[in-house]
Every structure is written in C-alpha cells, then in structure tokens.
Amino acid sequence: MAIQTILVINKSGGLVYQRDFVPNAPRLSSNEYLILAGTLQGIVAIASQITPKSLQLDGKSSARGGSEPMGNNSAPLVPYMGTLGATTANGAPLGSFLGPDYFNDAFASWNGRGLKHVTTDQNSLFVYHTLTGIKFVAVSTQPTTNAMAVAVAENLLRKTYCLYADYVMKNPFYEPEMPIKCELFDQHLGTLVKQL
C-alpha cells in the first residue's frame, strides 16, 4: 500500500495543496480535485453533526484532558514512521523541531466528531483535522480497514501538519488560505512520503 495523493484543504473548504505520489496512476483533473475538496468539507461538517452524543462527550473529554493518551480518540504513536531518517542520522535538526522526531508521544486526535476514514473498493481516504480547521487528506492506493494502517496514516498526516507549520506558515511569502506554492514544503513532503 502506498500513498497516492495528499491534499490540504483550508478551513473554508478550498483546496490549497494537491500532490500525487504515484506517477502512472490515473489522476483526477484539477477541477475534480476542487470538487472533491468541497465535498469532503461538507461531509466532515455533516459527520460532526450526526455523531452520536455519547461519542462526542467521549471525544471532548479525551481531547481536552489528554490524560489518557490511549483513549478512544487518540492515535498511538508509530515510532519513526516516515521520519526524515537521513537528516536525523547526521544530526541536522528537523526544522524547528529539535528532537529526533517531530513528536514522540501518542497524541490526542482533535478529530473528535468528524470524518476520519473512508474506504472504497479501490482506495482508502484518511482525514486529519486540525484545531484551526485545516484538513489534511491522504488517499492510499489500496483499500484498507486495518487499524494499524489508520494509525500510520494519522501519524503521517500529523507530520505533514508539522511540515506545514514549518515550511508554509513560517514562509513570509505565503498568504494564508491561498494555494501553497512552497518549494521546501514540496521537497520535505516528498522525502517524508518516500521514507514511509
């Protein structure tokens, strides 16, 4: 299983970043990707409305407290998953993250009540939600419902978020909510996915 596409959707549902990682796979046109982004935005919003109340409460308590990292809504850490291993070896720091990896604890997912994972016959789609409403979406080449795969995808997307924080948000030439055209983000995301 490999990552076919990574999308970044801004808080108003616009597609700001799209990148294919499988060279020969059939791809959607850019217009279709925009529609996909808009649809996902709507589905996430609807999903958060129809989540049963009990799940919402559970999600809230674990997201707020963070005291039980392995609770219902938290993702386990997959250590060194897609770390930029080469740069770690020679001691170069990972951007503004000074440790050997971007994070080294299991983390509470902020996606307490929205859409997390969609599986079709052909591929799976994973959504990572940030507090600020940005959605990172990964599309895999094969369908999977494996819990491990979901955890890996969650970790990958969280690292993508870390890269986004470093190379997009700290770039003075990037305008918020606009399409991302940052060479360094491209480059680091490429390395991250390649090392998966």
């Binding site: 770039n171 030439f173 360094l184």
Partner: peptide, 16 residues
C-alpha cells in the same frame, strides 16, 4: 551550508 534564518523560506527572488 544551512542558513538558520531562511531555512523555512522557499523563495527564489528575494534573499532573506
């Protein structure tokens, strides 16, 4: 080899 201040900035025309 790795300027610290501009490490997050991908820009070709302005040298930060």
């Amino acid at each position: 080899s790795a300027p610290m201040l501009s490490q997050f900035i991908s820009s070709t025309n302005v040298q930060c």
